[in-house]
Simulated assay, not measured.
Amino acid sequence: MELTEPVTGGPCWAELGTSDLEGAKRFYTRLFGWRPETDDRQEAGGYTVAHLDDAAVAALAPLFQQSQSVAWTVSFAVTDAEATLRRVLAEGGSVILGPMDVFDVGRFAVAADPGGAVFQLWQPESFPGAGRFNAPGTLGWVELLTRAPRPSAGFYGAVFGWSTDLDQRYPRWSIGGARFGGMVTMDEKFPHEVPAHWLPYFAVADVDDTALTATRAGGTVLMEPASLPDAGPRIAVLRDPQGAVFGVYRAADSAA
C-alpha cells in the first residue's frame, strides 16, 4: 500500500483472535519471524504484540467471547471513536463492542458494515498502530470481500472519507490519494455461509516459500501462489492451524 505509517481513516493495525494463543505464536513466528511479547497483566487477558526488530507489527489475542470467530481483524485509525460509531450507525452499520479505553494506549471499538464485514476502530493515545508497513512480515494491504460493493463504497466513504472507483475490475480504496486496499465482489464461487469480511495481506520475501512453510507448520493453502494479471503482485491466501485466513504478497511487488 502507499501508506508508510498509520493515518487517520486508514488501516493502522491487524489483530488475530485465536483459540490457541501459544499455537498461533509458534505458527506466525515460523512464518514471519515475529517476536511475540505477551502482556502479563491480568486485565490484558493474554494480549500479545508481535514485533519485528523494535517495531510492533500485529497482535495475537485469545478469543474473548464464545460468539467470536477465529479470524484476523483490521483496525482503522480515528480521532474520535464515539463520533465514528455514530456515523457507522447512521450509514446502516452496527456496533459490536465499545468504545472502551485500553490502558493509556488508546480507545477501541468493534463495528460491522451493512453487509456484515467486521472491522475495528482505534483512537490512538500513546500507541498509534503498526510501526512498519510493506516490509516482509508486516501488513501491506487490506481487502474487503463483500456481496454489496456499491453500498459498501458509500458506507466507507461516509464513515472514513475513502475513495474508490467501482468501474475498475478490482476497485481500490484510497485516502488522501494514497491507495491501501481493494474490494472483491463475492459471487457464486463463495459458499453462502462465508460472510463478508476484511482480509489482511502481509508482505513476504517469497510467496511460494511462505506457502510451503505454512503447510509444514500445520496451515492450509486456500489459494495457490499466483502472479496477478497486468503486472500485478504475486499473492497467495492461507489459513492458519486454528482457521484464521490471511493473504500474503511478494514485498518486491506493488500491492497497490
Rank of each mutant, 00 (worst) to 15 (best):
residue 6 P to E: 09
residue 7 V to N: 13
residue 8 T to R: 07
residue 9 G to W: 11
residue 13 W to M: 08
residue 14 A to T: 09
residue 14 A to K: 01
residue 14 A to P: 02
residue 18 T to D: 02
residue 20 D to F: 01
residue 20 D to K: 05
residue 20 D to W: 01
residue 21 L to H: 01
residue 21 L to R: 03
residue 21 L to G: 02
residue 22 E to N: 09
residue 25 K to C: 08
residue 26 R to C: 01
residue 27 F to I: 02
residue 28 Y to A: 04
residue 31 L to A: 05
residue 32 F to T: 03
residue 32 F to P: 00
residue 34 W to A: 04
residue 35 R to D: 03
residue 35 R to T: 04
residue 42 Q to L: 07
residue 50 A to I: 04
residue 51 H to R: 14
residue 52 L to R: 14
residue 52 L to H: 03
residue 55 A to R: 15
residue 55 A to G: 09
residue 56 A to N: 12
residue 57 V to Y: 10
residue 60 L to I: 01
residue 60 L to E: 02
residue 60 L to P: 00
residue 67 S to W: 03
residue 74 V to L: 08
residue 76 F to W: 13
residue 79 T to E: 14
residue 80 D to K: 12
residue 84 T to H: 05
residue 85 L to M: 07
residue 90 A to H: 10
residue 91 E to G: 07
residue 93 G to F: 10
residue 93 G to K: 04
residue 96 I to W: 00
residue 97 L to A: 14
residue 99 P to F: 07
residue 99 P to S: 13
residue 102 V to G: 12
residue 104 D to Q: 15
residue 105 V to P: 11
residue 105 V to M: 14
residue 107 R to D: 11
residue 107 R to V: 05
residue 108 F to D: 12
residue 109 A to Q: 10
residue 111 A to Y: 04
residue 115 G to S: 14
residue 116 G to L: 06
residue 117 A to E: 09
residue 117 A to T: 06
residue 120 Q to F: 07
residue 120 Q to S: 15
residue 123 Q to K: 13
residue 123 Q to N: 13
residue 125 E to I: 11
residue 125 E to W: 13
residue 126 S to C: 08
residue 127 F to A: 14
residue 131 G to S: 14
residue 135 A to Y: 12
residue 137 G to D: 07
residue 139 L to H: 09
residue 147 R to G: 08
residue 149 P to L: 14
residue 154 G to C: 09
residue 155 F to K: 01
residue 161 G to E: 08
residue 162 W to G: 06
residue 162 W to D: 00
residue 162 W to Q: 01
residue 166 L to N: 12
residue 167 D to K: 15
residue 167 D to A: 15
residue 167 D to M: 11
residue 168 Q to T: 13
residue 168 Q to Y: 12
residue 173 W to P: 07
residue 175 I to C: 10
residue 176 G to A: 06
residue 177 G to L: 11
residue 178 A to I: 02
residue 181 G to A: 12
residue 182 G to A: 11
residue 182 G to Y: 13
residue 182 G to W: 12
residue 186 M to G: 05
residue 187 D to M: 07
residue 188 E to N: 06
residue 189 K to P: 03
residue 189 K to Y: 08
residue 195 P to V: 06
residue 197 H to V: 01
residue 198 W to C: 06
residue 203 A to I: 06
residue 203 A to C: 00
residue 204 V to H: 03
residue 205 A to M: 05
residue 208 D to S: 12
residue 210 T to H: 06
residue 210 T to S: 08
residue 217 A to E: 09
residue 220 T to A: 03
residue 222 L to S: 07
residue 223 M to C: 03
residue 227 S to R: 11
residue 228 L to F: 04
residue 229 P to D: 03
residue 229 P to E: 00
residue 229 P to A: 03
residue 232 G to P: 08
residue 234 R to T: 14
residue 238 L to I: 05
residue 241 P to V: 07
residue 241 P to G: 04
residue 242 Q to V: 10
residue 246 F to P: 05
residue 246 F to M: 02
residue 252 A to V: 13
residue 254 S to R: 15
